[in-house]
């Protein structure tokens, strides 16, 4: 027994000797750019960090206490908005992507045009898209949305300052998220659709199934693993929303359209509160880890064969 273990260890060591040079560059990069910042962030979340002097003094949970008990409740609004973003946008992105990919896949001609059209928002810069949305939601008839609702179909009596109000500001952020990400899920679904055996559709045709029935009973179940993948990615992505908030509303009015990543940025770079910013970052990370664990449990992702 002892001999076998010794033998195995030597082989193991030899294996390491050969693979270590290949792993080392990645290991160094991960350590420098991921592990070290993570550990450092963890440390300053519980400290008073003076950036110029580099002084870090332990203050326990004080940073958390401050952000939890602020009178304008910015943290709670930001936290809520991240969840709302996920709840509102993810269903549209998942189902939108699935339906559009199905339709494009069944097109006899012009599929490429639609693929490009749907994918174009994904590769367009967030900054440019944000500016376009800002113009669209302009407060007067110079904004497309106001012009359409007030001057064309007359369902609103007055122009609305969309981006200056809590719910309309959030709605603009959600809409942008949906528009920007549907193309991505469409492409993933399109790839997955190619793996569904044609024979299933042929059999359904022989049984006289309608298009809807084929979609409902063949396409949707076959795409389940892909749906889980899109779902998990989009939910985690919902906690990384930042640019559209910064460019569309800057968290206003009164922090009511803020999200965790924007709050983190604002605390660190505008207010020099690096401890509070790290606390927000830590809460954000813990939430993402918990959500991932819950989703793994609920969807039993580990057991799903073919789950990406």
């Amino acid at each position: 027994m002892v001999y076998r273990i010794k033998n195995y260890s030597r082989r193991d060591l030899n294996g390491w000797r050969y693979c270590f040079p290949f792993v080392l560059p990645g290991l160094v990069l991960i350590s420098v750019f991921v592990l070290f910042p993570m550990i450092f962030t963890l440390r300053i979340a519980f400290s008073n960090y003076q950036i110029v002097q580099g002084n870090i003094s332990f203050i326990g949970l004080e940073n958390f206490k401050v952000i939890f008990t602020e009178s304008n409740k910015e943290f709670w609004y930001a936290y809520r908005n991240n969840f709302l973003y996920a709840i509102v946008t993810v269903p549209f992105i998942v189902f939108g992507g699935m339906v559009f990919s199905y339709l494009i896949n069944n097109l006899k001609r012009g599929g490429s045009i639609f693929k490009v059209g749907f994918y174009l928002p994904v590769i367009t810069s967030w900054v440019i898209v944000s500016l376009v949305f800002k113009y669209m939601f302009n407060n007067s008839n110079r904004g497309l949305v106001n012009y359409f609702l007030v001057d064309v179909i007359h369902i609103l009596p007055n122009y609305i300052p969309w981006l200056l109000r809590q719910w309309s500001g959030n709605a603009a952020i959600w809409l942008m998220g949906i528009w920007k990400n549907t193309g991505w899920s469409m492409l993933i679904y399109l790839a997955a659709l190619q793996s569904i055996p044609e024979i299933l559709y042929e059999a359904a045709d022989l049984d006289g199934a309608s298009t809807w029935q084929k979609f409902r009973f063949i396409t949707v179940p076959s795409l389940k693993p892909t749906t889980f993948f899109v779902l998990v990615n989009m939910i985690i992505g919902s906690f990384n929303v930042f640019l559209q908030v910064m460019l569309l509303t800057s968290g206003g009015p009164n922090g009511k359209t803020s999200v965790l990543q924007y709050m983190l940025y604002d605390r660190a770079f505008a207010k020099f509160q690096f401890g509070q910013a790290s606390a927000v970052g830590l809460i954000s990370s813990i939430t993402i880890v918990l959500l991932t664990l819950i989703m793994n449990k609920v969807f039993k992702l580990d057991n799903k064969e073919g789950a990406l």
Binding site: P161, L164, P253, N254, K271
Partner: peptide, 20 residues
């Protein structure tokens, strides 16, 4: 040293008055 906070307070106050 807290000019950013002061401007935010001013902005929120006036925005709330005018918008809401």
């Amino acid at each position: 040293p807290y000019t950013s906070d002061i401007e935010t307070l001013w902005k929120n106050c006036i925005t709330t008055i005018f918008v809401d």
